[in-house]
């Protein structure tokens, strides 16, 4: 057996091993990526599952009705309607809170999660009565900061209440 034969045999073996590794990686590529991500997360002390940061959204709304409502009445109605149409679990995740309400102009600000903003706006449109008094909730604007929400609360579409 010459040196030439030994080199050729070694080369064939290396090529076979390389081919097998490539085939294995290609077959389990997705699994490998997940495993690498898991290792990186473990290294940084994070959980493997995707946990997204909850950003807040402030929805400014106005109520059109014959009588003035209190803050508690409105908050209860919003939560009740939300639960009726989207369920208890979504309510927990969305957590709509009436953080500010101005009784004189019947306008307020609802704070919720950015993911469930559309759900809260949809549920506002579904409210037709509060304690058997006909009313209409109109969402005016959504902002990302409470400062901006308060700023535009008084000057946005004043013609609605005339």
């Amino acid at each position: 057996m010459s040196i030439y034969d030994i080199i050729v045999t070694i080369l064939i073996v290396i090529t076979l091993i390389y081919g097998f590794i490539l085939y294995y990686l290609k077959k389990n590529f997705r699994k490998q990526i997940i495993e690498i991500k898991r290792l990186i997360n473990k290294l940084h002390g994070r959980r493997a599952s995707e946990l997204r940061k909850i950003r807040k959204r402030y929805i400014i709304f106005v109520i059109l009705s014959g009588r003035n409502f209190t803050k508690k009445e409105i908050e209860d109605t919003v939560r009740e309607t939300f639960t009726k149409y989207f369920g208890e679990q979504t309510l927990v995740k969305a957590d709509p809170q009436l953080i500010y309400f101005e009784p004189s102009i019947q306008r307020g600000v609802i704070r919720t999660s950015h993911i469930y903003k559309d759900y809260v706006i949809a549920s506002l449109g579904l409210i037709r009565k509060i304690n058997d008094t006909p009313c209409l909730f109109i969402p005016l604007k959504t902002t990302g900061t409470i400062k901006r929400a308060r700023k535009i609360l008084y000057r946005l579409r004043r013609e609605l209440q005339k």
């Binding site: 559309d118 706006i121 949809a122 449109g125 579904l126 006909p134 209409l136 109109i138 969402p139």
Partner: peptide, 19 residues
């Protein structure tokens, strides 16, 4: 049939989007 039954456009869009 009454004034409080009309469509609120923004809410209707959100409702259709979610549904």
């Amino acid at each position: 049939t009454k004034w409080n039954e009309v469509l609120v456009p923004v809410s209707t869009i959100s409702f259709l989007t979610t549904l």
